[in-house]
Design a binder for these strands. Structure first.
Lengths: 193, 193
DNA sequence: AACTGCTGTGAATTGTTCTTCACAGAATAC
DNA sequence: GTATTCTGTGAAGAACAATTCACAGCAGTT
């Protein structure tokens, strides 16, 4: 139908391909050589939560179905199935993907443009080493003459919720801020290597 | 002297702290409990190539020194040393850091602002799945009416050397482009989790 | 030789982000 | 209570990024 596809001969291979690629949907048989479909499902959801999984099985039982859905499968189809059945499921799940993608795309834009600015990166780094700082403290540390410049960037960082401010006006990293910063470190190491 | 410091009781701990932090310099004793200084040096250079290492030892031998420098240590100091000796070494190495930082900072700015744009990210994604594409092929796939818009972004990506173009005018990802893209995937998963 | 589609360039325009500056209320120091 | 420092707002403009448009060379077709 024009979809781009890729196949894996085992659960292990599926996991590997998923890790290095960017898949919308995985079609997974419950009975597979090596790692079971259920196990694979669990792993897959862990390493790539955005990839939707459709389980397929010849031995459909309620238990298996419930288990699969609980583990995060998006659909569950019993063999033998009409090809149209599968296509319907794929279309439905793809729509789901597109919707979620729209949402996270916004976040990604936001986050990346936050990180694109060196002053903001320096602020994040400062907060990482000091844990919590006041405005003027940072201004002096960053050696910037106009404090409103720093205020501007702090506002941006607050809006993308990488930092927050307590009642005492102190700024600190949010959990997300910390995660992003560690990812930034990885990136930096990639670049300098 | 106003430097921010942190300590580790073993090589293993040092590696862990380095992985999660952002250190300019590590002072490493050759004789340590558990992992040896030489081993630690190797690991450290692997996970954080930008962190400079100064080796310190009570049993200075030429072999050890040569080995350390070969493995990427920036300096090698024998005990007992005058504190001023150490400080001089630190200052020299720090200067080295500042210089390199200036260089990679440029790259980081470049790369991040490349990734900040959704069109450019889509181009990268396309190239990841298709391996190699021509201009108009992408234009149609991206559903953009003005092809010069795509040309503009392709130019940017070429400049930050995330993609390149062969004689046949086909565009494809560079090694760096692939690495950055996989890092982007990690980031995306962080955000959607 | 004329036509079509591809791959661009360069200039003008629009749009966004960043900086600067004038100002002001709240907290703290004297 | 007055001065000073801190924390911020909002508007104007500068700097930078992205889009649009007119055009042009080249390759292949008819």
């Amino acid at each position: 139908m024009g979809y781009q596809t890729n196949e894996a001969a085992s659960g292990k291979e599926a996991i590997e391909k998923t890790a290095s690629g960017d898949f919308d949907i995985a079609l997974l048989d419950l009975m597979m050589p090596g790692m079971s479909g259920a196990e694979t499902l669990g792993e897959l959801r862990k390493i790539s939560p955005k990839t939707k999984v459709i389980m397929i099985t010849a031995f459909a039982t309620v238990d298996n179905a419930v288990d699969a859905i609980k583990k995060g499968a998006s659909d569950y189809i019993a063999k033998p199935f009409k090809i149209e059945e599968l296509l319907t499921a794929i279309r439905r799940v793809l729509e789901e993907c597109r919707f979620e993608e729209g949402i996270t795309k916004l976040n990604l834009d936001y986050t990346l443009s936050s990180l694109a600015n060196p002053i903001r990166r320096n602020i994040l780094k400062l907060l990482q080493s000091r844990k919590s700082m006041r405005l003027m403290e940072m201004v002096r540390e960053l050696d910037i003459d106009d404090h409103t410049k720093v205020v501007f960037h702090l506002k941006m960082l607050k809006e993308s919720s990488l930092i927050n401010q307590d009642k005492g006006k102190s700024y600190s990293l949010t959990g997300e801020g910390e995660r992003i910063l560690s990812c930034l470190n990885i990136l930096k190491n990639y670049l300098s290597a």
